Simulated scan of single mutants.
Amino acid sequence: MLHDRRVWVLAAGVILAMSISGCQRNRDGSLRSDGEVQTEQARLDEASTKASEGEYSDALEIFHAILEDNPTSGEAYLGIGDVYLEQKDYVKAEPALARAAKLEPRSYQAQFQHGLALQMLDRFLEAVQAYHRALTIDPDSAEANRNLAMSYLRMDEPRNAMPFADRAIQLDPTAGDGWVTLGAAYEGMQNWSEAAAAYIAASERMEPTPELMRNLLRVLIELKRYREVISTAQTLQRFGPDADAFERSGWAAFRLGEYSDSLDYYRKSVEIDPEFWQAWNGIGVNRLNAWLLSNREDSSAFRDSGEAFRSSLRINGDQTKVISLVLKYQL
């Protein structure tokens, strides 16, 4: 009986200790009253409002004042980190968010925001770990699944990225950036057809961007879908003159047997970038082809071909195939 009573007393003591340790304390170690807790919450709300209104200095001042009274306020550290994220100051954001994540291990927001700061600092392995912690708390977060996939992709691990990219789409099929991430995962695995389908799905759900169109262009080239290569390259020109897109259009048009269009695209490419030796090669091949099709009678085409190839070689002399062509036809 005495033994049972001692066990009960010991258990009660443990429970009491746990209860006391779980209570919020002031800097001097004294327990905080309900009024102090409510006052802190009001100050947190005030700081968050100022941050949402763009008054970042005032918000930071309040968050730091809260930490003076309560150095274990995870919400204050999270608020500081969020302000620095908004300001794109990731170096300052990361330590604040790391502290928030440690103080609030069950807070999805703390874990996710810490992952975001790490990702923006190119600390991808640590970002992966933070996003996994966030997904342990909320496995149905599309943004955490997507960002985790993106971090794996930056680590050149498309197979690890794939399940999370796919899960992000299942959770939010309307998000264009989710489809971009899925496309990048498929592209990393050299599944060109699925990559193209994902990039096209992204373009249907978001405003096309140069980055998205270049991604789509790359996989269409791999698939030899020449007509779509040309149309995608034309879309890229809407964002500004693009020598590479014109060069790729020239390549696709030549493959389609549309030699006049091909030559025009290549010439537009070197007008934008006179140092683009691949486009000079395209001009050279087109004009050499014209000379050969004329039964070697079109001297203008012959001359243009030699000039184009020499322009290419002046920029990049390490081209054995081009040198062989010049020597073979005495261009």
Rank of each mutant, 00 (worst) to 15 (best):
M1E: 10
L2K: 12
H3C: 07
V7W: 14
W8Y: 11
A12C: 06
A12Y: 08
G29Y: 11
E36I: 12
E40Y: 08
E40A: 07
Q41N: 07
R43M: 10
R43P: 02
A47Y: 15
A47S: 08
Y56W: 12
Y56S: 07
F63I: 11
F63G: 03
E68M: 09
E68I: 12
T72Q: 08
S73E: 06
G79H: 04
G79Y: 05
G79C: 06
V83W: 00
E86M: 04
Y90D: 02
A93M: 03
E94G: 01
E94W: 05
A100I: 02
A101L: 00
L103D: 01
L103N: 02
P105R: 15
R106T: 05
A110E: 01
G115P: 00
L121D: 06
D122C: 14
D122N: 15
E126H: 12
V128Y: 11
A130R: 04
A130D: 00
Y131E: 00
H132C: 01
A134L: 00
A134Y: 01
D138A: 02
P139W: 05
A142C: 00
N145V: 00
L148D: 00
S151K: 05
L153Q: 07
M155P: 00
R159W: 14
A161I: 05
P163Y: 12
I169C: 03
Q170M: 09
L171V: 03
P173I: 08
T174M: 11
D177C: 07
V180S: 11
N191F: 15
A196N: 14
A197G: 13
A198H: 14
Y199E: 11
Y199D: 07
S203A: 13
M206W: 08
E207L: 14
T209W: 04
T209A: 03
L212A: 07
M213F: 10
R214C: 04
L216P: 03
Y226E: 13
S231K: 09
L236N: 15
L236R: 08
G240W: 07
P241K: 15
A243C: 05
A243R: 12
E247K: 15
E247D: 12
G250V: 14
G250K: 08
A252R: 13
A252W: 09
A253N: 14
A253M: 12
L256N: 14
Y259V: 13
S260Q: 15
D261G: 07
K268Q: 08
V270F: 06
E275M: 15
F276T: 15
G282C: 05
N286F: 05
R287M: 11
L288A: 04
N289Y: 13
A290Y: 13
A290N: 13
L293S: 14
S294E: 04
E307F: 10
S311Y: 08
L313P: 04
V322C: 12
L331E: 15
